[in-house]
Each structure stands twice: as structure tokens, then as C-alpha cells.
Design a protein around this nucleic acid. Structure first.
Length: 226
DNA sequence: ACCCAGGTGGCCC
DNA sequence: GGGCCACATGGG
């Protein structure tokens, strides 16, 4: 047993991804993701946060909550115009509102409005189903799979790609290739935490310019975190 | 006045 | 299969 996580020997023989996980977890602690109370809220958040800061998404979700629209049946019955008003702060509001509508329509028509029934399906089948919906691409689908359906799927986002490149973990831009790499190097119970930790890392050190994630590495190096 | 944010779909070649 | 572009608000 190792008694000190900062001891270099502790990391010997570990893959870069495993090591990064340990080091980020030591530095930042548990992230308690996804920030949502229900699985439907995860779905809504995942769609709204596409190329949008979480701060803006929170405003939109707050509005939906106040109007009692954070519910499959309620949203299904609500006019598109109302959804658009609520979702406005999250940007791209025309298409996002439309895509939320399409999602709830799918759940109502195929699962009698029971989202959990849909989420209990087999992973691969569910992934294909999600990807077939307009407005749900790989990252959004995998966020829903991991955080709403509790499936062992790792989520790759722009931050993850950037950090991988800068740290020399992988130069690949291929989504599936990166996903396979993380899934191979982590336990399924770590997928949730790792994705959240990478986002936290990026938020702390990659704020201003894309290039500055080079300083992520150097800053954390100085602190002997990485 | 820029640049960016926890992407996606549609078009082009 | 890759390279652009529109989509839109709010914060630095």
C-alpha cells in the first residue's frame, strides 16, 4: 500500500491517464457531477450547454424550473415560443428549444413519456437512438448515457482533446479513438469523476486563450501536481 | 471591439 | 472523410 499520493513511486508504471486522474483528484477533490436533480434535467443541461458557458445554461434552467417545465409531459404540452423565451440566455435558442421539443416528443411517443424506461435500455442501442435525434451528437449523447442513464461511457469534449494534445497523451482528434483510450485506462466508476475533473482543470487554467493550457501543465508542475 | 463558451447539422468537395 | 459555416447570448 502507498502512503503518499505525491510520492513519485506511487505513479510508477501507471498510464498517463491514470496518473492524471489521481493527480487531479488529489488537487481538486470530488466534483459531484452532473449538477442536476433529475435525469431529465441532465438531458436538458446537456443540450443547452452545447458551445455555451454553464453560467448561461443555469439561467435557462432556472427559468424552466420556475415555470414548471423541467418535466417531459409539461414541456411536451408547452408551446415552442414559451420554451424559446426560457432558453434564450443559453444562446442558439431557436434550435435548442426546437431540439428539446423533439426530444420530449420522442419520449412521449415511444415511451409514453417515461424517460427512465428509455434510459434503462441497453447502452449500445440507447446510444444509437440518442444519436438519431436531431441536436444530439456524440458528446451530448455520451453525457446523457453517463450522467442520466448511469452507463459506463466516457465523455470526450473540446477541453479533453486540448488537454490530451498539450500533455502528449494523444494527438488524435477522433472522438471514438479518444473515448476508447480513456475507457481502457480508467475504471467505469471513474468516468464520471474524470470528465468533471478535466472540465475543472480547463476552467481554472484555460480560461483566456486556447493556447494557455500549456500553462496548465507548467503551473501544476510547479505545484508538483503534474 | 474583439474572443470565448462543457457542439451540432448542413453543405461542399 | 475532412473543412467551413450558421446558430446567439453573456462575460472577460
Amino acid at each position: 500500500m502507498f502512503n503518499n499520493d505525491n510520492d513519485i513511486l506511487y505513479y510508477k508504471g501507471m498510464s498517463m491517464i491514470k496518473r492524471l486522474y489521481k493527480q487531479l483528484y488529489n488537487a481538486f477533490g470530488p466534483q459531484h457531477w452532473w449538477p442536476a436533480e433529475t435525469s431529465f434535467e441532465v438531458v436538458v443541461g446537456a443540450i443547452l450547454t452545447q458551445n455555451t458557458s454553464w453560467k448561461n445554461v443555469e439561467k435557462a434552467i432556472e427559468c424552466l424550473k420556475e415555470r414548471k417545465l423541467l418535466d417531459v409531459d409539461a414541456m411536451y404540452k408547452t408551446k415552442l415560443k414559451i420554451i424559446k423565451e426560457c432558453v434564450k440566455p443559453a444562446g442558439f435558442y431557436n434550435q435548442k428549444a426546437e431540439r428539446l421539443k423533439l426530444f420530449v416528443e420522442h419520449v412521449v411517443k415511444n415511451y409514453d413519456g417515461n424517460l427512465n424506461e428509455m434510459l434503462e435500455k441497453d447502452v449500445e442501442e440507447l446510444r444509437k437512438e440518442l444519436l438519431s435525434l436531431k441536436g444530439i451528437g456524440k458528446e451530448t449523447a455520451d453525457s446523457i448515457l453517463l450522467y442520466a442513464a448511469n452507463k459506463p461511457v466516457f465523455v470526450i469534449d473540446a477541453y479533453t482533446k486540448r488537454i490530451c494534445k498539450r500533455m502528449g497523451i494523444s494527438q488524435s482528434d477522433d472522438y471514438e479513438e479518444l473515448r476508447a483510450l480513456f475507457e481502457k485506462n480508467l475504471n467505469p466508476e471513474q468516468y464520471n469523476e474524470m470528465h468533471a475533473l478535466l472540465v475543472e482543470l480547463a476552467k481554472r487554467y484555460c480560461k483566456k486563450k486556447p493556447l494557455c493550457d500549456i500553462c496548465v501543465v507548467s503551473k501544476l508542475c510547479k505545484k508538483q501536481v503534474i
